[in-house]
Design a protein around this nucleic acid. Sequence first.
DNA 1: AAATTTGCATAACACCGTTAAGATTCCTGA
DNA 2: TCAGGAATCTTAACGGTGTTATGCAAATTT
Lengths: 197, 197
Amino acid sequence: MEQTSHKARRQREIETQREAILEATRQLARQNGWPKVSIRKIADIVQYTPPLIYEHFKNKEALLIELEAVGFGKLRRTLDEARQRSGDPVLQLVALAEAYWEWAFAHAELYQVMFNLEGVQATSPRETALREAGPAVTETLRQLVLFSGPLDELFFNWWAMCHGHVCLIMSGHLQGHRSAIRQALLSGTERFAQGLR
Amino acid sequence: MEQTSHKARRQREIETQREAILEATRQLARQNGWPKVSIRKIADIVQYTPPLIYEHFKNKEALLIELEAVGFGKLRRTLDEARQRSGDPVLQLVALAEAYWEWAFAHAELYQVMFNLEGVQATSPRETALREAGPAVTETLRQLVLFSGPLDELFFNWWAMCHGHVCLIMSGHLQGHRSAIRQALLSGTERFAQGLR
DNA sequence: AAATTTGCATAACACCGTTAAGATTCCTGA
DNA sequence: TCAGGAATCTTAACGGTGTTATGCAAATTT
């Protein structure tokens, strides 16, 4: 049946369009920041007219939510990898913070859409999205804490430390102190981990 | 000279208009979130037409920057007060974190414009704005650290802890865990302070 | 070959930030 | 007192935005 292959080919074309839209969106956000990202400009880049975007995404927010999920997935994998580069839990936790920091700035446009920073606004149910990146961290924390400590609290602490330092730079505050803040995050995380032994 | 009193009266009217604009902006942001704040709606509330806004502010961003400054001023005063409610530096640092948390949610619309959260985007020189709220915290930290420790780093750590926890809630992540995150911030700050003795 | 579905574009709507031009009121000075 | 001008505000417009109804042409099915 070549009908099937036609349909399959068409299906791949659609998927290609979808990927192109997502990639164009990220490109625009990287180049000019999220506030200047518009459906019309995205359509321009992918060489179609605006209504085509709406065949792939219900609206602009749905596009952002998709990228948010992409971001959390990528971040999760990055953290999983980082955890496996050392055995000592203290070093692990610091390595996780370092990986978090590097990832955030290497994929700033994703990070911004994940946390509604710098002009992004998407109101989605994100409850699960954040937790998804947690297991690697939580497992490392577990090795640091005797008995069953308040793992949730400690996880929030670690996350807030990382996110907080990243945000201070991304929001434009302390622009000139990027490496100093990076150092503060790393040494702060180490002290945090040491204190849990 | 009643010319002078005329001018003075007029001056006060202008100031009143300006205040009304700022207040209307905050009101709209509180009610519907920043993305739905528009010059036209602000003009509606203050019972004038849009161009009048531009007699008081160069553009929309200038309005936001003004509110950003208002926010940092208020936050600074709040922290100064909180610091004076206890003598013990550990308790002080925790009280500062608590005051920070409470203030952020009591003035969420200001907090969002201060840090470009939830759809706000203002590109301003903020270097000084953040530091302005620092002295109270730094002074408390000084009492905790022997000799001259890396006060800058510790200040960034404290700030990032507070800001990070606040952000996790404000961005919609962990929506249901507000009081748990609050508790995490407070106990995390206490552990942080204890570790500096 | 006719009918229908697919795949896209054109064109429109309401809203946005911003500004140029006009109208009206008020004050000034002769 | 009254013309002239400044102060004060509005109307109207421009280009941009997200989104959707309509239309058209090609491809597919019957």
